[in-house]
Design a protein around this nucleic acid. Structure first.
Lengths: 208, 208
DNA sequence: GTCTATAAGTGGATAGAC
DNA sequence: GTCTATCCACTTATAGAC
């Protein structure tokens, strides 16, 4: 096939396919060949739209962050505590929708446009609410730590469903740990909510 | 060279070299060939000590977690708040000593022995302090989220030192963001401390 | 703007000699 | 227990035809 009448590819289609592939098979499964095959196209064609594979990943990561709702900052209908709670939940939901890209997204430079827009909104919202700028910066940072950490690693998933795996001689307190394996999502979601509330409550103690 | 009098390799030497290589050049730089070269040995020799490359990474990750101090749990000299604060700081220090392995360590199953010993100690310490088991589990989980998240991603590092990078039209509140690039460690460390205190203070409000 | 062909290289892992 | 030799799948990216 030579040049088709209509372009077969577009940046959006490539990013969507990359995200789907990463979701289905993990970060390591994303190769330019695999991705091109998924799009019904030959490998090198991707380079007409992105300079490198890294650029594709950056675009995919930014798409994920773009799904985070930041409309609660500075709309006058939320106090800073409510805004922080809502934003954190939206942030976590955006990441857990594509968990396999989180390691890339969390390590990367974070200079991507959607990430900056999010940082800008959070910082602006906190300052407007009365936080000193230095504290507003820290709040943005620490919330990022907590949300990315919770989206990255399932805690409950670290335990297997086999009671025999936890010899009381080695792990005296883990006698019931095998039960966690059956409720991974619930355990992780509950831990996130507990931590989120503690964080916001604890910050409120520092306000002013 | 045939079989040497004394083994040239050992699991410990391999793990130490792997960690050094990951520290110096990142996770992606760890290949069996590179690692073997670093040890003055030929590639396949590693397979006499580890079945797969993954097993080497698991051992390296477990070594890092093994450096976390958990002695403050259940020693009678710490209340739960002080124990949590001390543990979290030791945990973060262990991870930031080897930041490049954190993505692997945080995603992985966490079934490794040192990780289980740590989970066991934290859970036991919280239950002993009077927390209900379900809450003790959540505390272990949410602290893991926060610490791994903070060790994984530098927040401040996501900003470049060039003021022109933050056009006020796009990011109305990031006018001073370029200053963060100069103090990455301090900003990240301060955000961690602020979040840690908020977490523990917030949890105290939920106690009983 | 997609194709074919291919460069130029890396990866993990195995077989069998010593 | 380390070696050499080797397999083979797979990688990102480029050159040039159409």
């Amino acid at each position: 096939m030579a040049r088709p009448r209509k372009p077969l590819l577009s940046r959006d289609r490539i990013v969507a396919a990359a995200l789907a592939l990463i979701d289905a098979e993990g970060l390591a499964a994303l190769s330019t060949r695999r991705l091109a095959a998924e799009l019904g196209v030959s490998g090198p064609s991707l380079y007409n739209h992105f300079a490198t594979k890294e650029a594709i990943l950056d675009a995919a990561a930014d798409t994920v962050i773009g799904n985070v709702d930041v409309s609660m900052f500075g709309d006058g209908r939320h106090d800073w505590r409510a805004a922080l709670l809502e934003w954190a939940r939206s942030y976590r939901a955006a990441l857990t929708a594509h968990p396999n890209i989180v390691p890339f997204l969390a390590v990367g430079p974070g200079l991507r446009p959607a990430g900056l827009r999010m940082a800008d909104a959070v910082f602006g919202g906190m300052v407007e609410a009365g936080w000193p700028p230095a504290q507003a910066t820290r709040i943005g940072a620490l919330m990022r730590y907590f949300v990315t950490g919770s989206a990255l690693g399932t805690f409950a998933g670290g335990f297997v469903g086999d009671p025999a795996a936890y010899d009381p001689a080695d792990y005296p307190h883990l006698g019931q740990a095998h039960r966690l394996a059956d409720h991974r999502e619930q355990v992780d979601a509950a831990a996130f909510e507990t931590g989120l509330r503690a964080l916001v409550d604890g910050l409120a103690l520092q306000f002013r």
